[in-house]
Design a protein around this nucleic acid. Structure first.
Lengths: 231, 231
DNA sequence: AGGCATTCGTGCACGCGTTCACAAAGTCCG
DNA sequence: CGGACTTTGTGAACGCGTGCACGAATGCCT
């Protein structure tokens, strides 16, 4: 009996939705809800019910026909699949406006991603304490990554410094990067990069707004960009 | 001669990439680069060259065979298509940690999205000035949206207040929302919502990290999640 | 115990997006 | 001026993700 299956590959689109399901399920658990149907979960997540079932089927055949899914069990399974059974310390590069906000954002530590350190290249920023974490110099990056076993780095620098930050992170041994700088990072193979670009998001919204006006008042209908439940 | 074509619909995936091209092209223009090939742009954007050409072909047949695209002209065309020929004022709901960082983030105003106002429901926060903008009470939302002609709202509240913020925004007449709260917003039809969820992004990275370890040291290869050029 | 209602799991078809491959169109040089 | 070279624009094939529809399994009620 194979205790830990090698686990089949999960489609990227599904991986992106699992965290959403997880958050909703934890909420439900806090409200003493014991079980939930794919329909119920779909409604709360703003997606199709069949999609929910297919997504969850990648985890295994948990779920009871005629009843639904046991919330607590599903939380455990998703946690395990996403690798959230233990903490993933992160290091933040850049102690500017954004870096400080991220370090102060409670959502990190509370959700299993404690801030192992904040570093900056500007000596004048080093030493200041933000959100209980002392800012250290970027030269200490290697040491932080190694002693705290950091796998995930966050780039919160100005655009001009982002590539250098990424280079230092990968050199220090980080294998996943969350990039907030409006720059396309070049990284070695095998390094996982995800980007969050506020300007891009706004410009996408701008496109649909502009379109809405230009075309006149005709049916806008499916201008929802993936998410969005109707009231 | 139709001055302004009705413009065929552009695939969502392409719309999401246009802002990236735009940023790169503006950079190139600043460095006095006059023209660029689809190959060159593709490299800088970290995508396939054919994809660049197909994306740009949705704008029209700009581009000269044997030469490439004229940078300045392409910048103009993308700007026009994305509706960036004029500013889009945005209103930020929530003057907490994140709201302040967003208001202070220069990337907004400089990229055509000036902050028309920051509002909060907490009277103790009202009146304080962040990044040159005075925080006003959320009851002033309607007035701000109407007098400043705001179409885009940013939700930067705690999760528990996010739905209320979205309701108020749509009621005030906002038709696009950028949501930073880890909540699935329910909005009326025709309202465009995009979400930015830090915890979700980290959890996705966590999945691939966990997988990397579990499977052992075998080829990780295509674990790049869309972006990522090799060094 | 049997039948009915409910809900899961999934095969299948459809549509969108990506990529290849190549003709068309232009430049450059001898 | 002609031929070689470069690069665009796009038809076509492929692959992935979505959503429908339905069989299978389970619980509940009589």
């Amino acid at each position: 009996m194979p205790v830990e299956r090698p686990r089949r590959r999960i489609p990227e689109a599904t991986v992106a939705r699992l965290p959403v399901y997880l958050r909703i399920l934890i909420e439900q658990a806090n409200e003493e809800v014991e079980s939930i149907s794919s329909d119920g979960l779909a409604e709360l997540a703003g997606v199709n019910a069949a999609k929910v079932r297919k997504d969850l089927s990648y985890l295994g055949s948990y779920g009871t026909r005629g009843v639904g899914y046991e919330v607590a069990f599903l939380v455990y399974q998703i946690r395990r699949e996403l690798g959230l059974t233990h903490d993933w310390p992160v290091v933040i590069v850049g102690a500017g406006n954004l870096g400080q906000a991220l370090a102060g954002y409670g959502g990190f530590g509370q959700r299993g991603f404690p801030v192992a350190g904040v570093v900056d290249i500007d000596p004048s920023k080093v030493g200041s304490v933000i959100a209980g974490v002392r800012v250290r110099h970027i030269d200490d990056l290697d040491q932080i990554v190694q002693t705290r076993h950091v796998n995930i780095g966050v780039v919160a620098t100005p655009p001009s410094a982002a590539q250098d930050a990424a280079d230092r992170l990968t050199r220090a041994g980080v294998t996943s990067i969350l990039n907030f700088a409006p720059v396309v990072l070049a990284v070695p193979n095998g390094i996982n990069v995800r980007k969050v670009d506020l300007a891009v998001e706004l410009q996408i919204l701008s496109y649909y707004e502009q379109r809405r006006m230009g075309v006149g008042l005709q049916a806008i209908g499916s201008s929802d960009s993936g998410r969005g439940a109707s009231a």
